[in-house]
């Protein structure tokens, strides 16, 4: 009877064990770019790992390349519908008027800033010195310089990690769920999932004006809430990430008042 109860509880918990979370942060005064804007899309930083039976992430070159190509295609398709003038950087040396080293520096700087935003705004390590509302991060004068030299209004940065559980780990998970019937329950060894973020930098001020985090995952190894190795999965992630940019709080309030 007890075992049956556990199994039932487990069966109920399965649908809620997987989830997709997104959370947007924007500068209070942020208005999503509209009309005749020029956008620079930086090379997306994509990694796809395979999760071994023991739970270690093993980098997979073929999946990573496939996913990066898919993400770039999805971004292209998505931005084409927007109306702005867009350039995609697939290499650091493709930006006219700006050296490869400067692009690399900007990418590294953004990687540090973007990780900080994700860590301190989303992953829970809140900073008492930072306001909870709005977005108070900048790439500084270097970004402004790039904007001045190239004439772009915005730069979009994107980071995506996807972990795919291996067959061995799925088998282990099935064993863990099967165990529930004998009284040893390990229904949620997990391991797979996505973590991605995108940030929009205003190249006139250097400030990060909009930031969005997507986290998908499930406690059950083998249940996937998206997979960027497929074009459809990459489209889904891009849509979740940059599909709908919400304006900043102050702008929203003004709009509501009207």
């Amino acid at each position: 009877m007890r075992h049956l109860g556990i199994a039932l509880a487990l069966a109920l918990s399965v649908p809620v064990a997987g989830c997709v979370q997104t959370r947007q942060f924007a500068d209070l005064q942020f208005t999503p770019p509209q009309g005749d804007y020029r956008l620079l899309v930086m090379r997306p930083d994509v990694t796809v790992n395979s999760v071994t039976t023991g739970g270690m992430p093993e980098p997979r070159a073929d999946w990573t390349e496939q996913a990066r190509a898919n993400v770039i295609n999805a971004l292209r398709a998505q931005q084409a519908a927007r109306g702005g003038k867009v350039q995609f950087l697939t290499r650091r040396n493709e930006l006219r008027g700006v050296s490869e080293d400067t692009v690399a520096d900007l990418e590294r700087l953004h990687s540090a800033v973007g990780n900080s935003i994700a860590l301190h705004k989303y992953l829970g390590a809140y900073l008492p010195t930072k306001p909870r509302r709005g977005l108070d991060y900048t790439l500084g004068s270097e970004a402004v310089e790039v904007g001045r030299k190239t004439g772009f209004d915005y730069a979009l940065f994107m980071h995506a990690e996807d972990s795919i559980v291996s067959g061995g780990r799925v088998a282990l998970q099935i064993l863990g769920i099967a165990g529930c019937f004998v009284g040893f329950c390990a229904p949620n060894i997990g391991g797979g999932g996505q973590f991605a973020y995108a940030s929009l930098v205003d190249l006139k001020t250097g400030d990060v004006v909009w930031f969005n985090v997507v986290q998908t995952g499930s406690q059950i190894a083998g249940i996937k809430m998206g997979d960027i190795r497929s074009p459809a999965g990459a489209e889904q992630l891009v849509e979740r990430l940059v599909g709908r940019m919400k304006p900043g709080r102050d702008v929203r309030r003004t709009m509501e008042r009207r």
């Binding site: 071994t52 039976t53 023991g54 739970g55 270690m56 093993e58 061995g168 780990r169 282990l172 064993l175 863990g176 099967a178 165990g179 004998v182 009284g183 040893f184 390990a186 060894i189």
Partner: peptide, 20 residues
Amino acid sequence: RRKTDIFAIGAMVAGVAGGA
């Protein structure tokens, strides 16, 4: 990888077989 695999399988098999 081999060692963590062994460990994970070992722990799971031990757990399931050990029951409650």
